[in-house]
Design a protein around this nucleic acid. Structure first.
Length: 580
RNA sequence: GGGCCCGUAGUUUAGCCUGGAUAGAAUACGGGGCUUCGGACCCCGUGAUCGAGGGUUCAAAUCCCUCCGGGCUCGCCA
């Protein structure tokens, strides 16, 4: 609101100075000066006007600042021109009073965006069910789930889908392996499937003649699916896929991730859409034939040709994916896919094909790989670190830490607290990094609880809880009469100013994060909140303060901090233990 | 070789879309604070030729070009 007042006032001034209408003017954008000392908002518009007005930015800034001063912009106490910038100073007494009221009124809805009336289908994880989810997949799942929560909080309706690759070669290898090797039923299901998969691959490497069996399985599964026929083969595939999927669900649940829908790619063979897609693509006139049919996508800048089906007639991943996306895009206003960088070319081809057929295309959020210090991971060779391993290690570490600190004695309670800490640590360490940055996984970094982000944030929250508890007790004991309607009836210090300002940025942070599809913006923001709070806490006595207005106001700040951290972590899928 | 992505303090990184005030933080390191509103804390300090070189601009980490280093990709695999 204040920002809008400032911008409107600025536009009016610029209009007077240049005679240009608002549409033609340079866009006025408010930014934050590097320090409180310089002000709370600033604009560099004087630099941009310098050429048009043929005056130096300094002079223009002073002219504008001087004339704005007389206008009394609501919420602004002072305006100064410095080095060509026009800086605005907030009236912190009213700003804080209003801000705190807003946060406490809206509570866990503070920051929530207005209903957008748009449905988004967000596809994430979609890992092949041929072995446990590893830390590479965790990036997909965590970025995807965080983005879902950010978008929902921002006002979109979001449905998450897991696209199940049940028809691929790798699944045929699993089914083949299940006939040859015994499934270890004592192991977590996805891990057991993974072992069979690794063994089967070994066997195939040593006996290339067995390859025929794989092709045969794929062919039979597809033929049966086309006929919607249930038989031995389809049962084997379904069993294997579901078996692994159950393990995945368990893993994801530890990270607070749950999909709304699991969509099997075979369903698009069963309902005839794959065949129809091929037919429609054939009719575009862009298909060439040599041994097989190839779709020419050079109109879309793609030199590689898309093969529509295998020589033996079975369908390919890309074609099935096109069918899936046609169906998906019909059922939403926007589609978003979270995909690994290795899918870039395929995704481009799928999108080009969709355009060719006249359908909407999904947006794609790509993430780069997580590698190990010794190189890249591989499910096939069994070289990877599973999410389960990482989570268990993190939880063990958290339990130790909680016990050491002695905040809880009850085993169940310790377990619950540690669980939240572990989920937070795992999720936060992934989501805070921009997805396009390659990551190298190191155990000591992943488990360094003393130093790493999330526990610090959760701890700040726990501390808020404790202070509020104590504050409430004091109030009862003293039976003090505090005028609850007029907090901040004093000159705030810098730590308080920075904290309240940071807290009130939250709605904008959510909006921006949703707009650009970057949950890491929220992640970095919540850490800012914790830091601002810690400085405030370290420098501003709360319960020891004598002035009752200050005590009351600071307690309100604590309550607001608690709310914002809860809301912020919640949209990152992280819970806050009340003590830790 | 072509295409895409990444390269910012010792380390992990924010900022890059939309160019502007001394490049923000964490960690590590050095110093200080326990009469703890729970020290997973606070205060001060050291540490960055923003991969290199050109260009555009009053102004470049940010935009453009070239190069270097790393990753991914270029299958009738997914």
């Amino acid at each position: 609101m204040i920002e809008k007042n400032i911008i409107d006032a600025l536009y009016k001034k610029i209009n007077i100075l240049t005679g240009e209408s608002e549409e033609k003017m340079e866009t006025v954008r408010l930014e934050e000066p590097p320090s409180l000392y310089l002000g709370d908002y600033s604009t560099n518009i004087a630099f941009r006007l310098a050429r048009v007005l043929k005056k130096s930015p300094m002079v223009i800034a002073e002219e504008i600042a001087d004339s704005l001063k007389s206008e009394n912009i609501e919420g602004i106490k002072d305006i100064k021109a410095v080095n060509g910038y026009i800086n605005f100073f907030l009236d912190y007494n009213s700003y804080s009073k209003k801000g705190v009221k807003k946060i406490l009124d809206e509570k866990n809805n503070f920051g929530r965006g207005e209903e957008k009336n748009k449905k988004i289908i967000l596809e994430h994880t979609s890992a092949n069910p041929n072995g446990p989810l590893h830390i590479g997949h965790s990036r997909n799942a965590i970025v995807g789930d965080s983005l879902k929560r950010v978008l929902e909080f921002a006002g979109y309706e979001v449905e998450t889908q897991y696209y199940v690759n049940d028809m691929g070669r790798q699944e045929a290898i699993v089914v083949f392996g299940l006939d040859k090797f015994k499934l270890d039923e004592n192991k977590k299901p996805d891990h057991a499937i993974g072992e069979v998969y690794v063994e089967a691959n070994k066997l195939l490497n040593e006996n290339p003649e067995l390859e025929e069996n794989i092709l045969d399985l794929m062919k039979k599964y597809e033929e049966s699916s086309e006929k919607n026929e249930e038989n031995e083969i389809t049962k084997k595939f379904e069993y294997a896929v579901n078996y692994a999927l159950n393990g995945f669900k368990e893993t994801l649940k530890n990270l607070n991730i749950e999909h709304d829908k699991f969509v099997w790619e075979s369903s698009y063979v069963k309902n005839g859409m794959v065949r129809e897609v091929i037919k429609n693509l054939m009719e575009t006139g862009k298909v060439e034939k040599d041994e097989v049919y190839r779709l020419d996508l050079s109109d879309f800048g793609i030199e590689k040709k898309l093969v529509l089906a295998r020589l033996n007639g079975t369908s390919l991943y890309s074609t099935r994916d096109i069918a899936y996306h046609i169906d998906k895009m019909k059922n939403c206003d926007m589609g978003i896919n979270i995909l690994g960088a290795d899918h870039k070319l395929t995704a481009e081809m799928v999108n080009a094909s969709l355009k060719l057929l006249g359908y909407n295309t999904p947006e794609i959020v790509f993430y780069e790989f997580i590698s190990l210090p010794e190189g890249s991971m591989s499910t096939r060779r069994g070289r990877f670190i599973s999410i389960d391993e990482l989570f268990e290690e993190a939880k063990t570490r958290a339990i130790e830490e909680v016990k050491k600190r002695g905040v809880a004695t009850d085993e169940d309670e310790i377990n619950e607290i540690a669980h939240k800490i572990a989920t937070g640590a795992v999720r936060y360490n992934i989501v805070r990094i921009s997805p396009e940055k390659p990551m190298v996984f190191r155990w000591n970094e992943a488990l360094d609880f003393e130093k790493v982000g999330c526990p610090v944030i959760q701890y700040a929250h726990a501390r808020c809880c404790r202070i509020l508890e104590n504050g409430l007790n004091n109030e009862h004991n003293n039976n003090s009469n505090i005028d609850i309607n007029e907090p901040f009836d004093y000159e705030l210090n810098d730590n308080e100013k920075i904290l309240i300002k940071t807290l009130l940025k939250f709605p904008k942070v959510v909006e921006k994060s949703a707009d650009v599809r970057k949950p890491q913006i929220v992640a970095n923001y919540v850490l800012d909140v914790a830091q601002a709070f810690n400085r405030f806490y370290g420098n501003c006595p709360i319960l020891k303060e004598k002035n009752q207005n200050i005590v009351y106001s600071r307690l309100k700040l604590v309550e607001c901090t608690k709310t914002v951290i809860e809301n912020g972590l919640n949209i990152l899928g992280i819970e806050c233990p009340g003590k830790m």
